[in-house]
Design a protein around this nucleic acid. Sequence first.
DNA 1: GTTATATTCAACCATGAGGTTGAGAATACG
DNA 2: CGTATTCTCAACCTCATGGTTGAATATAAC
Lengths: 118, 118
Amino acid sequence: MVEYNAIASKASLDEVFSALAHPVRRSLISRLAHGEESVMRLAEPFPISLNAVSKHLKALEAAKLVKRRWEGRVAWVSLDSEALVVARDWIDHYHEFWTARLDALESYLDAQSEEPDE
Amino acid sequence: MVEYNAIASKASLDEVFSALAHPVRRSLISRLAHGEESVMRLAEPFPISLNAVSKHLKALEAAKLVKRRWEGRVAWVSLDSEALVVARDWIDHYHEFWTARLDALESYLDAQSEEPDE
DNA sequence: GTTATATTCAACCATGAGGTTGAGAATACG
DNA sequence: CGTATTCTCAACCTCATGGTTGAATATAAC
C-alpha cells in the first residue's frame, strides 16, 4: 500500500539551507513562528514588491519549510517544521562528531601531561 | 580592555547558511568532522579542480565553519564548530516557538472537543 | 456584470556564485 | 642553486538568484 503523499519528494538539504540563507526568508520564518499569515500581510513590512515576497515563499515551500492553505482567494501560510528538524539534525550530527573528537583529543593531551617523562 | 580578537567579525547567518547550502561544502564538513586535513587531500575525492575546492574552503572559513593552521606550505583545515552552533540555535529557536504554538493549539482544540455543546 | 482584491506567472535585467584555466608566491627537496 | 609541491589570486564564462514590471487568474464585493 503506497502512502498518501508518496509523491511529495523530500526537501533536499540544498534547498533547505539555501532557503535559510536569505534574510528575507528567515524573517518570514520568524514571523510565521507566531502563527499563520496571509501573503499580503507577510509582504507588508518588506521594502520589496509583493511579487518578490511571493517568490521567497515559493522557495520556502519548495524547501518544505512552509505550508499553504487556501481559503477563497487568500493563501494562509504557516510553518512546516519538518525541514527545520532535518536541517538541525544534520548540523547536530557533525557538531557532535566534532566535539566528541575534541573531547577525546583533550583527554589524550591531559593524559600525556600527567606522565611527561615517558 | 579590548579583546584579543575584537576585530574578527562574527559570521552572519547569511554566510553560515549559504555555506551549508552547497553539497561540496557539506561534504567537506563531513570529512573534517573526522579530523584535520590538508587542502590537497580534501580536494582529492571531488571531481572539480583544486581551485574550486580552495574557493569553497574560503567560503567555509568566512562563515567561521572552518579554521586554517599553516605548517610550512601546507594548510591544515579543521572544523570550527562555533558557527554550527549559531546556525543550530537559530533553527532551534523558531522550531521551539512553532512547536509550542502547535501544542497550545492542540490542547485548545482538545479542550473544545471536551465541551462540544457550549 | 463590473470592479476590486489576493496571488501567481512571464519576461526581463543586474549581480553573484561556481566552475574553468593560467599565473604567482612561498616552502620543501634534489 | 633549480625544480617540484601546495595553495591562492586574477580573469573569465555560464547559469542561477533576486529583484523589477505588467499581465493573468480566481475569488469576493457591489
